[in-house]
């Protein structure tokens, strides 16, 4: 049960197609929205220095961000939200989305972080960057938890969409009619994603109780990812302030939105 805002009782506008989609169709659409493998395409010189590792990490993040915007636009219903909501959601969750992608790529590689097919790091390689080992360890621990749960691709894509759509829900309250309408659309869209995740879990052949527990365990992991992202944001801001790394383009814009 949840309290519906008043506009949710109005007839469904024709453009809200996701509300009429089956969970299976919705998952199929967000699976198609998945970005391709993104390569760093740099000649990595090992051992890394603090500056070279930070430069590789930020170069890759900047590339991934461009694809992330394209991914968000392909989630059914996202572009029907107000532009302000689209911007706010993305600026709040970008590092969480990058981290969940990293966790997914690393889930079958214990002890390693697979940033891209051509940029893989062992835990110990984090030693060369001050303060990053703590973040690597938290990422590896979250990855191990997803490994224990045997995270499925369908569940992963739903969790990623949930991070995006849930990222800004509690930091603003709608003031104008337009903002309220967008908020209502956002809540309906979140309903569709939750339905899709429930459906994905229901296909795994678990008992009803095990399905409920799995839903709880998977969604509880999202609070850990938010925590790691906040730590990562602080770390990147510090590295930028100390001029260890030059942050530019879209990454700079997204980072500054969070400072």
């Amino acid at each position: 049960l949840h309290l519906e805002p008043p506009l949710a009782r109005l007839p469904q506008p024709p453009h809200e197609q996701h509300a009429a989609m089956s969970p299976e169709e919705f998952i199929s659409r967000i699976m198609e929205a998945e970005p391709p493998d993104i390569y760093l395409m740099e000649d990595l010189k090992k051992p890394f220095t603090e500056a070279s590792m930070m430069m590789s990490l930020t170069n890759l993040a900047d590339k991934e961000l461009v694809f992330m915007i394209s991914w968000a636009k392909k989630i059914p219903g996202f572009v029907e939200l107000s532009l302000a909501d689209q911007i706010n959601l993305l600026k709040c969750c970008w590092l969480e989305i990058l981290m969940l992608g990293l966790i997914w790529r690393s889930v079958d590689h214990p002890g390693k972080l697979i940033f891209s097919p051509d940029f893989k790091l062992n835990r110990e390689e984090g030693q060369c960057v001050e303060g990053i080992m703590e973040i690597f360890d938290m990422l590896l621990a979250a990855t191990a938890r997803f490994r224990e749960l045997k995270l499925q691709r369908e569940e992963y894509v739903c969790l990623k969409a949930m991070i995006l759509l849930n990222s800004n829900l509690c930091s603003t309250s709608p003031q104008t009619a337009e903002e309220l309408a967008s908020r209502t659309r956002l809540l309906r869209l979140l309903d569709s994603v939750i339905d899709a995740l429930v459906w994905a879990i229901s296909k795994l052949g678990l008992s009803t109780q095990q399905q409920t527990l799995r839903l709880g365990h998977l969604t509880m992991l999202l609070s850990h990812i938010r925590h790691i992202s906040n730590k990562g944001m602080d770390h990147l801001s510090t590295m930028k302030r100390k001029n260890v790394v030059l942050v530019y383009n879209l990454l700079l814009e997204m980072l500054e939105a969070n400072i």
Partner: peptide, 24 residues
Amino acid sequence: SSLKEKHKILHQLLQNNTSPGDLA
């Protein structure tokens, strides 16, 4: 409009149909 000015690149990517391949 301040939101759009503060997030020029993000705003541009959300509004136009440029594919990431073109920008990468």
